[in-house]
């Protein structure tokens, strides 16, 4: 039985068992590999996507349970047309290995959509589920603030 999904504005019919987590639908079926697998137990945030604008761990949402429109890092912006938050990530030179950064950006984007002027404490609360083994935290913090500033000026 096919399941219908709307991902980055495009409709998809997916022929997979309904208990397959959204993460593995995106990566192995649709070919959207920007969303990463890190732990499979919602402990690292690498697989963060938006469903109807809300940041969720796609490793924990079964295909059959997807309740709205899905946005992945590829839907936020592209190398030739980056979103403001991605430009902030480039400006602050955040990434090292870069593997966790899709999830970091998706989590930060949801934070900024809800709270356009986050304090350090707000950033700590929102971002603490997103692990980075390279230790890019100071630049993630700077990029969130920089994106907030750029969004206000826009």
């Amino acid at each position: 039985m096919a399941t219908s999904l709307r991902i980055n504005g495009t409709a998809h019919n997916v022929e997979l068992p309904e208990d397959v987590p959204l993460l593995w639908v995106l990566r192995d079926e649709i070919g959207l590999t920007g969303t990463k697998f890190g732990c499979g137990v919602a402990a690292c945030g690498a697989c963060t996507v938006h469903i109807d604008g809300e940041a969720v761990r796609s490793c924990q949402v079964a295909l059959g349970d997807v309740w709205g429109d899905v946005t992945t890092i590829e839907g936020v912006g592209t190398p030739d047309a980056m979103a403001t938050i991605q430009r902030a990530w480039v400006e602050e030179q955040v990434a090292q290995c870069g593997y966790c950064q899709s999830g970091q950006i998706m989590q930060a984007a949801a934070l900024l959509a809800e709270n356009p002027d986050p304090t350090d404490a707000d950033i700590n609360d929102a971002m603490q589920g997103n692990l980075c083994r390279c230790g890019t935290y100071p630049r993630i913090r700077a990029a969130v603030k920089s994106a907030a500033r750029m969004m206000k000026e826009a």
């Binding site: 590999t33 920007g34 990463k36 697998f37 590829e74 991605q86 480039v90 990434a95 899709s102």
Partner: peptide, 22 residues
């Protein structure tokens, strides 16, 4: 300090890691 050559790819989900090979 020069901009990292991989920074745009790593900020847009387009950098290809081993597990992204298709």
């Amino acid at each position: 300090t020069v901009p990292r050559i991989d920074i745009v790819a790593k900020s847009t989900g387009t950098a290809e890691f081993g597990v992204d090979v298709r």
